[in-house]
């Protein structure tokens, strides 16, 4: 803790600088509210339910999309990782679609799915799918051949090898996919809500910008920051529960 003192002092100074620059008019701009004002608006809107309901709806869409996308990615990844031929046919398609930046698929999808939940869930699932697929395939490929042979001589069936050997051995790699796809899900949710605006936290930001309500805008960004932080925390917790052996064994 002692080591961080200077850093925390710096952070507090920066926040004070923000407050002072707005309060004493060092930055002359309509768009530069004081930190206190932003916190106040956030507090009021969270309490009144205005912001909390929006956040809850966005998170619900994000979670549904995330679960669908990662399940599909992991399942297809297990398949492609174990079946070479299928891999040869499908991987080129995946590689062709994967580099498309996700905002670009939203306009055509609006034509089919409208601008409501279906669109946003689909877009989140789509963006999560690729990192999960790639990391699962990589994990399955890198399972040490000796482990699989050991299981075979111990009379393990193909299905059990997949479940008891390949899946746990690939889990660290799958988790590293989650490390990428979890923040990506949040990003994509916001992107989709901004482009196909009608509701959600992303839409709130865009609307506040049009309406010149900087306090509302910053308070939405603040909420997203907290959510991003919590997601990371959640991930670390899960990682410690699911693969406690991994980091320790790597250092051994």
């Amino acid at each position: 803790m002692k080591k961080r003192t200077a850093g925390i002092v710096l952070l507090i100074l920066l926040l004070l600088l923000w407050e002072a620059s707005a309060r004493f008019g060092w930055v002359k701009s309509e768009n530069w509210p004081t930190l206190v004002a932003v916190l106040e608006v956030t507090y009021r809107q969270l309490l009144s339910g205005e912001l909390s309901l929006v956040l809850a709806a966005s998170m619900a869409r994000m979670i549904v999309g995330f679960v669908i996308g990662s399940l599909c990615g992991i399942l297809l990844g297990l398949l492609l990782g174990t079946l070479r031929t299928l891999d040869g046919f499908l991987t080129p398609l995946v590689e062709a679609v994967r580099p498309i930046p996700v905002p670009a698929i939203i306009p055509p999808l609006i034509l089919f799915l409208g601008i409501d939940d279906a669109l946003k869930i689909f877009v989140v699932a789509f963006s999560v799918f690729f990192p999960m697929l790639v990391s699962t395939v990589g994990g399955v490929r890198n399972v040490d051949e000796t482990l699989i042979r050991t299981a075979r001589t111990l009379q393990t069936t193909q299905g059990s090898i997949l479940r008891f050997v390949i899946l746990p051995a690939a889990l660290p790699s799958i988790m590293s996919g989650f490390r990428i796809s979890l923040p990506l899900a949040l990003i994509t949710t916001v992107v989709a809500e901004m482009i196909a605006g009608s509701s959600g936290i992303g839409y709130v930001i865009v609307r506040a910008q049009y309406a010149m309500q900087p306090q509302e805008m910053y308070s939405a960004v603040l909420c997203l920051m907290v959510i991003g932080y919590l997601l990371n925390l959640l991930f670390l917790l899960f990682e410690r529960r699911l693969i406690p052996w991994y980091h320790l064994s790597e250092n051994a």
Binding site: G7, M194, Y218, L224
Partner: peptide, 18 residues
């Protein structure tokens, strides 16, 4: 580190309108 840990979790797309 503290400042970076604070800024890192912001989904940067949210900063486009500001």
């Amino acid at each position: 580190e503290p400042t970076i840990e604070l800024l890192r979790p912001i989904p940067k797309v949210a900063l486009v309108p500001p």
